[in-house]
Nucleic acid binder design. Structure first.
Lengths: 194, 194
DNA sequence: ATCAAATGAGACAAATGTGTATTATACGGT
DNA sequence: ACCGTATAATACACATTTGTCTCATTTGAT
């Protein structure tokens, strides 16, 4: 891939351009998911040629963007110390960790379809596996009705995250409240209760 | 728009091509939301020139597609006789009416962004207003917790419809079960209960 | 049969996005 | 100061899509 990587003592700013491009791509695609490479390069303060040097094709860039997003969400979730809490508290913690990332990653749903990269699919599957684990945990703790297919539970969690992202993005709701509402919606629905 | 419309006795098949194009557009865009006009025209069994004759621009076609979709969903919901049921039964009926339409309209979320037509925005706003009314009805009947923002309830309903559409489309779940699960999720969440 | 409207077939221009290649320049470490 | 790398600035080729236009043909109503 990068033939000079192996050479030692060449760390300099080798990745700085690349990172700038990925960051700019995230920021730009967040506004317009169909932004051209020219626009992204400009936003990165870099020539289009340089962009192509780091990412041979648009798909390669989209891949990198997706992987970066998945890496960051993964990190946010992994930062939670789940050993000290119940599965339902963990659910809330996950919502609270992920929802603030919506600013940057809400566009993923639109953009992921562009790519068929195995790496991205793997990372995505890994993330889904994490959600499935959480669902199973809730099942074990009796926090989830046995009649509910785990598959559906996973889908609803994803949907609530996306909905929260959009609601926060449109200024309809504050991140913290979104997390609380999403959690409540998942666990007890919107009827009755408080 | 169509200067010959006023002439009487010219109903013939004047709109048949147009309808064929809209139908083909729906079917084609359902598979690939970025399909070109050539592909759509071919699917409609019509030359691209004819397509352009009916729809001057791509946006005009997308508009027509969106309006058609909104019209159909509206019709499906309006067919429900809400006078004989509770608000929560109505919610289930709405889910059951709309979810089967996902086959054809699930792509709307991706495509609506292409257009900024006032007509489409109006139709969309009208539909949202319908959901808001339903939410208020549920509030009046005490089926909705007062602490839940109506705004959030509307968002969750939309999200559940979209999630159901996708889940059904991917064969993960049957339409009827999807409606039941969506309804249950909204009302009582996925914990406890049955 | 006739006439008008609708259509099919095709050519065409313009715009856009993407990927490649070339050359000169700036930067950074040795 | 030197040298290699990364970069900027271009230019280019290529594909795709969209929209327009023309002309011949078909269709359908009368």
């Amino acid at each position: 891939m990068n033939q000079s990587v192996a050479r030692l003592a060449v760390p300099t700013k080798r990745t700085s351009s690349r990172d700038a491009i990925v960051d700019a791509a995230i920021a730009t695609l967040a506004r317009s998911p169909d932004a051209s490479l020219s626009v992204i390069a400009e936003a990165a303060g870099v020539s289009r040629a340089t962009l192509h040097r780091h990412f041979p094709s648009r798909g390669a860039l989209i891949d990198a963007v997706c992987l970066q997003a998945l890496r960051e969400t993964d990190a946010a979730v992994n930062a939670i110390d789940y050993t000290t809490m119940s599965s339902t508290s963990y659910l809330l913690a996950v919502f609270e960790a992920i929802i603030p990332l919506g600013d940057r990653f809400h566009f993923l749903a639109k953009v992921v379809a562009e790519t068929a990269s195995a790496a991205v699919n793997d990372a995505y599957a890994h993330q889904t596996r994490g959600v499935e684990e959480m669902v199973r945990w809730m099942e074990r703790e009796g926090a989830l009705a046995p009649s509910v297919p785990a598959d559906w539970a996973v889908l609803v969690i994803d949907a609530l995250i996306y909905t929260s992202w959009m609601a926060v993005r449109e200024g309809r709701i504050a991140p913290r409240q979104a997390a609380a509402l999403a959690c409540r919606t998942f666990l007890s629905g919107l009827s009755g209760g408080v």
